[in-house]
Nucleic acid binder design. Structure first.
Length: 474
DNA sequence: TCTGGGGTCCTAGGACCC
DNA sequence: TCTGGGGTCCTAGGACCC
């Protein structure tokens, strides 16, 4: 999917179509998750600090991510992929491999040609647009690596076929960074050895690459550089670890506060573990200091657990052994070594479930009820700001559905529009206006009256009118 | 106003075992 | 009574991806 999070927001918020939209963390230490193509023109891209993005593109709409909505849209797209073939390997919410060959016949002899594959790809792109109003790009090739490179080249809103036999010639002039798995460090190591392109990588030979990069990475890179990749498409892979982490708006130094945050993170981690029906044996704590140096400490238990008290205690022990006096900007808790069930105390566990509790088995200290609310991130004046995060859907008793454009100084600004409506107008309220309430996201295809199949194309953003949707800074 | 959050895979050293 | 050669598990860190 092209600029997925930003594109979903543009589909859901008519006034943002054709305008720069930046989705990501809105706090002082946030980064960009996705920038719309209109924002990329200004040099904004994923993983860029939000502060830098605001300098480059001050008039963009800055929105907080709505993962629940993106997940729903993603499910619609993944369902379309599964109609092509049962063998679908999602890489993330917005990207997947499809093994067309496993989907059975296409064409006379049950074989795919470049032509029939292209037709299927174009049909898929049309179906995705009809179902979601969003554009996706398709890469078609004989392996996962090449299909990925093809889809990358096809973006945005395109399709590219790499016919068998043309791979090496196509790859040779490309920079090594094009190959998946080659990041800044690998590119640097290769550059020092005078290797800059995929062709030069292939010429270097396996022995040289292994010497530079190690057994596994060097060997894999040598194969990829020659267009060789026989990794299968794998539909379902069990998760191998579960983790949660928080970066704090300001560094933490208080020991008691750090202990409390670690306990909260442990509870959140276990909640996710349990929701997945898993348990784990190794508890990991992650600490990032004021200077961004990061360390992990882990402890392996005698058997797998999904008991919050057990994970909390292990995490507390681990963080106790870390010097946090100079200030901590991030804390994380994770569990790995996952198993499908818990060995200890199955009876107590089922008892707790039957009682509808996400809590643990009885033991000594009853859990303090988990704070229902977000990451207690050292912010002040939090209450109202938290409720009116830019981008979230709201409903006003008189004006109907809309979304928060910004808030601050006791005010909240709302744009009244929804998927399928014309671009709406803006009104400002006091933050505690009793007629204003937060509401569930409306998916892009939930426009009031029209068929999803046609609507998304009819809106021309150029006639939207109204000023650029900058968000008043919180 | 410098740097999120959730993952995967690999490497390397030490403990431990046969 | 101057030193083997595996194998596995655990811990820590790092590269990379979306």
């Amino acid at each position: 999917m092209d600029a997925f999070y930003a594109a979903v927001e543009q589909a859901a918020k008519p006034s943002l179509r054709g305008k720069p939209v930046i989705v990501g963390g809105l706090g002082p230490r946030g980064v960009v998750a996705t920038a719309s193509y209109e924002a990329r023109v200004f040099g904004v891209h994923s993983a860029m600090p939000m502060a830098q993005a605001r300098r480059l593109c001050p008039n963009a709409a800055y929105l907080t991510p709505r993962f629940g909505l993106y997940r729903r849209v993603s499910e619609v797209v993944m369902r379309l992929l599964r109609e092509l073939s049962p063998l679908v390997e999602p890489l993330s919410l917005d990207e997947a491999f499809v093994d067309l060959q496993a989907g059975g016949a296409e064409g006379d002899m049950g074989r795919w040609s470049a032509g029939t594959a292209r037709e299927a790809g174009e049909r898929l792109r049309r179906d995705i647009r009809a179902a979601t109003g969003l554009s996706g790009s398709v890469g078609l090739a004989g392996s996962k690596m090449l299909a990925k490179i093809a889809s990358e080249q096809a973006k945005p809103d395109g399709l590219l076929v790499i016919p068998p036999g043309t791979e090496r010639a196509l790859l040779a002039p490309m920079p090594v960074r094009t190959l998946p798995g080659v990041g800044p460090a690998t590119a640097q190591a290769l550059r020092r050895a005078g290797i800059a392109t995929v062709g030069e990588t292939a010429e270097a030979g396996e022995a040289e690459l292994v010497r530079l990069l190690g057994r596994a990475h060097g060997g894999a890179l040598y194969a990829m550089a020659r267009g060789i990749d026989d990794r299968p498409v794998v539909a379902e892979r069990d998760a191998k670890s579960v983790s949660v982490e928080d970066t704090f708006d300001t560094d933490l130094t208080d020991r008691a506060r750090i202990r409390a945050e670690v306990a909260r993170l442990a509870d959140r981690c276990v909640a996710r573990l349990r929701a997945a029906g898993r348990s784990g044996r190794t508890v990991v704590v992650k600490v990032r200091s004021y200077d961004f140096s990061t360390l992990t400490r882990s402890e392996t238990l005698r058997g797998p657990t999904d008991d919050p008290a057990v994970v909390r205690e292990a995490a507390a022990r681990l963080v106790e052994g870390v010097d946090t006096t100079a200030g901590v900007r991030l804390l994380g808790v994770g569990v790995s070594g996952l198993a499908d069930f818990t060995q200890e105390d199955l009876f107590a566990q089922t008892g707790a479930r039957a009682a509808g509790s996400s809590g643990t088995v009885r033991p000594p200290s009853p859990d303090p009820p988990m704070a229902a609310d977000g990451p207690g991130r050292g912010g002040r004046g939090a209450e109202a700001v938290r409720r009116w995060l830019p981008g979230l859907d709201v409903r006003h008793a008189r004006y109907g559905p809309g979304w928060v454009q910004g808030s601050g100084l006791g005010r909240v600004t709302v744009r009244f529009e929804r998927p399928g409506s014309p671009p709406g107008r803006v009104r400002t309220f006091v933050v505690d206006d009793p007629e204003l309430e937060s509401s569930e996201p409306l998916p892009p295809w939930d426009g009031q009256d029209s068929e999803p199949a046609t609507r998304p194309n009819v809106m021309s953003s150029s006639e939207a009118g109204g000023p650029a949707p900058g968000t008043p800074s919180p």
